[in-house]
Write a protein that binds this DNA or RNA. Structure first.
Lengths: 204, 204
DNA sequence: CTTTTTGACTTACAGCGTAAACTTCCGCGT
DNA sequence: ACGCGGAAGTTTACGCTGTAAGTCAAAAAG
């Protein structure tokens, strides 16, 4: 499994095949079936192996800061395993380390005074931010050209009358992945904070 | 392309192969290469074809309501094409309809008084919510068992001492996909709203 | 009427996941 | 010391995938 992670880290998730993982271990492909029931189980194990690297949160911190560092810790790990968000979000399996991670998020939310229902709902927003945001960012960064940000490139060569708001926005805004991740995270925390305060209607 | 969408709708994205799409069109697999350069381009076209169904926003609405209906419209379309979020989030291509969708979101944000930078950053949060949240929800709902929510099932059979916060939360909270999607959306809008008001530090 | 373009078909190949059967070898009870 | 059970690894094979290359008939253009 660690061999699979290493292989995916340097050659991408598509390079992970039973035959190649076997080769990396100096063994035939079919031998791997002694240890996993199939490729799906291997991928699931690899994903959970990455999540195992997520640092646990410091429960002594104030809940917002605790949540913030917890999520940022996960983010930093995912930076080193950019293939991981895709299988983590598209496969149904939920491994023990992911459960631990989810449990940690819930712990911070409950410490902040969320009702169980509110914590449950907010969890989805946070969890999705961790895996969904990274997934989309890494995807764009892997765009064919050498340019850092494919959306820019596409729009630059496109009709500014067709996409007026993009044309207006681009150029004035700079793209910084890390800062953006933190911004959305803070938006989420801020929104949850407000939901805790006024437990009734959120908007207005 | 529409044949590919229909095929994916009823048999899943994995059932989409060149040979099967060709079969659905009464044609051999290789004939498709007259119209697309390869399978990747086909999938990209299918994704953009789904996004083409997203209804445009009503620019007359107040910005928050405009953004809300815009995103909900997209959500409803994705409910009918549950395979779409996965390729939409994991492939680098950005089609014209997706650009239009993004442009629409930006329009609502700018109408709300966002700076260009704020609109740009918020866009990522909204866009990721649309595709990332649906991706994760559909993934869980496709879990093997007949149960609706796999996380429940997993945790139910797991050590409540290992995941105390999950154990505390589950049972008290009920899972309603639609309501959850709207909740997180409102959290995002609420957070953006607050970011517009106080342009300085978000938390505290 | 000839030439060019178009659309589809056929064949072929390398790679994939994995089912099934087979060999090799180590550790243990007798 | 012997035999044997099970673990570990290999070999072979099958059906599936995307797609490169070459062929051929019909339609469109000159």
């Amino acid at each position: 499994m660690v061999a699979g992670i290493a292989l995916a880290d340097e050659r991408g998730i598509d390079a992970v095949s039973m035959r190649r993982v076997g080769e990396a271990l100096g063994v035939e492909a079919m031998s791997l079936y002694r240890y996993v029931s199939g490729k799906d189980e291997l991928i699931d194990a690899m994903v959970d192996g990455v999540i195992a690297e997520f640092p646990a949160s410091d429960t002594a911190l104030e809940w917002r800061e605790r949540l913030r560092t917890l999520v940022l810790g996960a983010y930093l790990v995912l930076l080193d395993h950019r293939w991981a968000p895709a299988p983590a979000t598209s496969r149904p399996a939920v491994g023990p380390n992911r459960l631990r991670f989810v449990d940690d998020i819930l712990g911070a939310l409950l410490a902040g005074g969320c009702t169980h229902q509110l914590a449950h709902d907010s969890l989805h927003g946070i969890d999705n931010h961790v895996f969904g945001f990274t997934l989309q960012e890494f995807r764009l960064e892997s765009g064919l050209s050498g340019r850092g940000y494919e959306l820019d490139a596409l729009v630059a060569g496109n009709d500014p009358e067709k996409y007026p708001n993009i044309a207006r926005t681009i150029g004035d805004a700079h793209h910084d992945r890390d800062q953006e991740f933190i911004f959305v995270l803070d938006v989420l925390i801020s929104g949850i904070e407000r939901a805790i305060a006024g437990s009734t209607r959120l908007l207005q």
